[in-house]
């Protein structure tokens, strides 16, 4: 049985979709079978970031309503043969996501894939709670900025109360993915530092993704950043995070200076 990951944040625009695509492609490059699932019904974007927007025929809602088979809705990545996308519906609204339907789809996907990565919509409404409902692991995407940290705290509370794991009395595994981190600004005291965010949210660190132009470049091209340029700084950080998700115990690299954008990351033990 595969593992189910939810990529969530509460706040919009912090990098959930980018991170879902990047982690998915990074895990797939480790020869694991990966499916990324877009839960943002009505505002889908994972297809665009993955570069599969013109290949969408059926979507998650079609599968839930029985209009299409799961295998018909899955889109295989053109670059990585073991990476798949299950797109969200653009025309329906989120009320079409039923708890039973989502449960069935997730259980089916778990049988065939090593990793099922659910890209949560922003907010704490139905789409977001259903995306996290069946997760084994949560990746909480946070920017080093007050509103994002506050929303992440709220999401952590929901992960601990509204998920299947929580309801069964089990402990939900949660990881912090700090994105758009600018080491130089943090050094100057004008951006929350890694330790500040870790102390406030008290969940273990999965990785630090440096602020970088490579991320926008990749989405312009329609490729997960870990596929567009596997050697740029954000990609290296995502590959590291993927290794950690897969169970490896490796130190987290903290991007210290502006130079890090050129790929010069100074490895240092974090948290």
């Amino acid at each position: 049985m595969g593992k189910v990951i939810v990529v969530t944040s509460g706040k919009g625009g912090v990098g959930k979709t980018t991170s879902t695509a990047a982690l998915g492609a990074a895990l797939a490059q480790r020869n694991e079978k990966v499916v990324v699932v877009d839960f943002d019904v009505g505002l889908r974007n994972l297809d665009l970031v993955m570069g599969a927007e013109r290949r969408v025929v059926y979507d998650l809602i079609n599968v839930i309503q029985g209009d299409a088979k799961l295998t018909q809705a899955l889109i295989r990545d053109k670059r990585l043969e073991n990476l798949f996308l299950l797109p969200a519906s653009q025309t329906r609204d989120k009320d079409n996501l039923t708890p039973e339907g989502v449960e069935w789809v997730i259980n089916e996907l778990k049988r065939y894939f090593d990793w099922v990565i659910c890209d949560s919509p922003a907010g704490i409404e139905r789409g977001a709670t259903l995306a996290m409902r069946h997760a084994d692991i949560a990746v909480v995407v946070t920017n080093p900025e007050v509103s994002s940290v506050r929303d992440s705290d709220r999401i952590i509370g929901l992960l601990d109360s509204k998920t299947m794991k929580a309801e069964r009395g089990e402990r939900m595994e949660k990881h912090l993915l700090l994105t758009r981190y600018d080491g130089a600004r943090a050094q100057r005291g004008d951006m929350l530092k890694v330790d500040d965010v870790l102390e406030i949210l008290s969940i273990p660190l999965l990785g630090i993704i440096p602020e970088s132009t490579d991320v926008l470049r990749a989405s312009n091209l329609g490729a997960p950043v870990t596929l567009a340029d596997a050697r740029c700084a954000p990609s290296l950080a995502y590959f590291e995070a993927a290794r950690r998700l897969a169970g490896e115990d490796i130190p987290v690299s903290i991007p210290e200076e502006k130079r890090s954008i050129l790929g010069k990351i100074f490895a240092r033990r974090a948290a």
Binding site: V146, D153, G189, M191, L192, D196
Partner: peptide, 17 residues
């Protein structure tokens, strides 16, 4: 420096929330 203030505000706010 603004980061220490951000940190403090968050700690107070989140303890309350």
């Amino acid at each position: 420096r603004s980061a220490p203030l951000a940190r403090e505000r968050l700690q107070v706010l989140l303890a309350h929330e």
